[in-house]
């Protein structure tokens, strides 16, 4: 927590975690953590949605693809959703997404779904700290870096072919 955020494996790696918090419960709990001056790791960036049910699996994948080492999704406890049942839809979708992330080689623990009620400011602190520690141990995911690495294999041929001179038409029209 004393090091600024840096990218890179090994010592000094600070995980970058994107969090989607539902307005009524988890975001409010994070506000409460703030009001209570609880201190926790600075690695999380919160994106506010009205309901965890707004979170599309595409968002989770996009966060990883854009460089997140971990994605945290926070919603109301089952039965307490401000919009009655939005969090059940979240749970159903995300249980499948978890399987798919695993099949795509994304380590267990990088994606996390937590139910945090508006009164649980201390749970925000403990979940964030716990997740940062676990993702730190897993190391960087760095998908943008990996994408660039994987795409290197087609660069050489690309340069070769684009370096070839243009072929003009023999007769001008």
């Amino acid at each position: 927590m004393s090091k600024p955020m840096e990218q890179g494996a090994g010592a000094g790696f600070e995980p970058r975690i994107v969090a989607f918090f539902c307005n009524w419960c988890t975001y409010t709990a994070a506000d409460l953590a703030g009001v209570s001056r609880l201190k926790y790791a600075p690695n999380v960036r919160v994106i506010r949605v009205m309901c965890s049910g707004r979170v599309d699996p595409q968002f989770v994948m996009e966060a990883f693809a854009k460089g997140a080492d971990g994605v945290l999704l926070g919603g109301c406890h089952p039965g307490d959703c401000h919009y009655a049942e939005g969090n059940y839809k979240t749970l159903r979708r995300m249980r499948m997404l978890e399987r798919m992330l695993k099949d795509m080689g994304i380590a267990d623990g990088r994606f996390r779904l937590e139910w945090i009620s508006g009164a649980e400011g201390d749970k925000v602190k403990s979940v964030v700290n716990d997740m940062v520690a676990k993702v730190r141990a897993l190391g960087p995911l760095d998908l943008p870096g990996k994408f660039a690495e994987w795409d290197k294999e087609i660069e050489e041929l690309e340069h070769q072919i684009s370096a070839q001179p243009a072929k003009e038409a023999v007769h001008a029209r």
């Binding site: 049910g53 599309d56 699996p57 595409q58 994948m61 996009e62 839809k89 159903r92 979708r93 249980r95 499948m96 997404l97 798919m100």
Partner: peptide, 15 residues
Amino acid sequence: RVKDQGAKFVSSVFS
């Protein structure tokens, strides 16, 4: 309007 067909389908059918 969809970036990832598989992810969007999951979002829908499992709702």
